[in-house]
Design a protein around this nucleic acid. Structure first.
Ligand SMILES: [Zn+2]
Length: 251
DNA sequence: ATTGCCGGGCT
DNA sequence: AGCCCGGCAAT
């Protein structure tokens, strides 16, 4: 069973495609569009936004425990489903209740449309740009102790940094949310506790040849610049604005 | 060409 | 201190 998780909606269907179509037309407000975009150019698969608004409800479901987070499932509903529309094993569980498995990222709060803003008095009724913009809910681990590694966790952009609603599309794609990709990184809380206290100018191992400390090292690194683009520079973190090492996105 | 950022200049 | 940019390295 696939249930719509939209605020208050109780729509339920047995087919995955059906619920997605329901969400698309009823909630997302966009009509059925043939999979082929004739006009637009290429790659990115059309935003699968509807995939965030339904959950798979099953009579019996094995509790998939993420190998990376063995002790974090005390607050969030344990659920991770890869892309598997049909075929369910049949574990010996006689529970009558149903377990919901949210597909794609963990969403602690069922109604995603209005992202829970930390605390900011906003104009009632509409939120942000109007489109159901989700935010990359970074899984908050229980960091045992890592004071020096205060890198991310402040991805929540200020309520309204820019008084002007900047809306300039580079193409036909409406910037909905993060440039999601098909693969989701799953970082483990196995971080080394670096005792970074030495504050000198000791720059060891700095041969003029090999020093992978500069330049565009990894193609996977998305810093403020690439994320927001040259436009909306005011959304970058301070360090990025000054062309210094980014402070928001560690790694 | 683009991105990340060190080094260094200016206020 | 904050702010900005030249220029380098890596993609
Ligand atoms: Zn940054």
């Amino acid at each position: 069973m696939f249930k719509c998780t939209w605020n208050g909606c109780q729509e339920m269907t047995s087919a995955c495609d059906a619920i997605e179509r329901h969400i698309r037309s009823t909630h997302l407000g966009r009509e059925e569009v043939s999979s082929e975009h004739s006009d637009s150019d290429s790659d990115d698969e059309d935003d699968h936004e509807e995939e965030f608004y339904w959950t798979e409800v099953e009579v019996n479901v094995a509790t998939w425990v993420d190998p990376c987070e063995p002790l974090v499932n005390l607050a969030l509903p344990p659920a991770i489903t890869t892309t598997l529309p049909t075929a369910v094993p049949a574990p010996p569980i006689t529970t009558t209740t149903t377990i919901t498995t949210t597909n794609k990222m963990i969403t602690p709060t069922p109604p995603p449309p209005p992202p829970p803003v930390p605390s900011a008095p906003q104009s009632p009724g509409m939120t942000l740009t109007g489109i159901p913009a989700l935010q990359h809910t970074q899984p908050q681990y229980i960091h045992v102790s890592s004071p020096p590694t205060l890198s991310h966790m402040d991805m929540a952009r200020p309520p309204h940094e820019d008084p002007r609603y900047r809306q300039q599309m580079g193409g036909t794609t409406l910037s909905s949310s993060w440039p999601r990709s098909s693969t989701y990184l799953v970082s483990c809380p196995v971080k080394n506790i670096v005792a970074g206290s030495g504050r000198g100018k000791i720059r060891v191992s700095s041969s003029p040849k090999a020093s992978p400390g500069r330049g565009k090292r990894n193609g996977e690194s998305r810093k403020c610049r690439k994320v927001y683009g040259m436009e909306q520079r005011d959304l970058w973190c301070t360090q990025c604005k000054w062309k210094k090492a980014c402070s928001r996105f560690g790694e």
